[in-house]
Write a protein that binds this DNA or RNA. Structure first.
Length: 215
DNA sequence: GGCCAGGACACCA
DNA sequence: TGGTGTCATGGC
């Protein structure tokens, strides 16, 4: 257990309150959002998801059947829409090819196996896989993103060039294995990052000055 | 008008 | 295996 890691969590929780992530209505929506939000602000992702909803396509069967080109047009507000349309299609191929479209069955797999399977799908990298395991399957798998590395490097708790897996291990070894804790912690880090820790150095300093004095 | 978002993959040496 | 390029909208 890492006391400082827990202290930072409590400080963030006090500052921002419970986040209640993920902002989605169903596990399937979590998965679609996780792919669409790759290197993209959530505001843009929401527009794309709304388009899918209006078109009545926000379901495994809907996304499986819609032509690639139409799908790309619908998710245009999310960045890199051609690539992401292909990624969504690949995921549906995987879901129907291996689980007959049964999402519950896929998500019922043990966390470690689920993560490995997700990583085998083209377009699903470590962060996307962990987001799905944690927020769609509700199983413990800590999510690392650019904000996490940036903030904990500035806090002197991670090295600047830390790998994804190393950072993940650092958090999982340092925290109780608790799904709700993992969910809230990552959401709070993103909230802090969005407000104060953009890439510009001055903003990172600002973040640390105002929000990262953790005893 | 410019910068950059809650990444992942291809390609190259 | 690590570094760099590609993808390509919309908000601030």
């Amino acid at each position: 257990m890492n006391r400082k890691l827990l202290a930072v969590y409590k400080r963030l929780l006090r500052e921002f309150g419970p986040q209640g992530w993920w902002p989605a209505e169903t596990p399937f929506e979590v998965i679609v959002g996780a792919i669409l939000t790759q290197s993209t602000s959530w505001q843009n992702v929401e527009k794309a998801i709304q388009n899918l909803k209006k078109a009545g396509l926000l379901s495994p069967d809907g996304l499986r059947k819609v032509p690639l080109r139409n799908l790309a047009v619908l998710i245009r507000p999310a960045l890199y829409y051609n690539v992401k349309a292909r990624k969504l299609k690949r995921f549906m191929d995987f879901l129907y090819g291996n689980y007959d479209g049964n999402l519950d069955l896929l998500l019922s797999r043990p966390a470690g196996q689920l993560r490995e399977e997700l990583l085998s799908v083209w377009g699903v990298g470590p962060e996307t896989a962990d987001s799905i395991v944690l927020y769609a399957a509700h199983k413990p798998s800590f999510v690392i993103d650019a904000y996490t590395k940036r903030i904990y490097w500035r806090l002197g708790m991670l090295s600047e060039d830390v790998s994804y897996d190393e950072a993940k291990r650092f958090f999982e070894d340092g925290l109780p294995k608790d799904v709700l804790l993992y969910q809230e912690y990552h959401a709070l880090i993103v909230e802090l990052g969005k407000r104060y820790c953009r890439t510009k150095p001055v903003c990172v300093e600002c973040c640390l000055k105002n929000y990262c004095r953790f005893g």
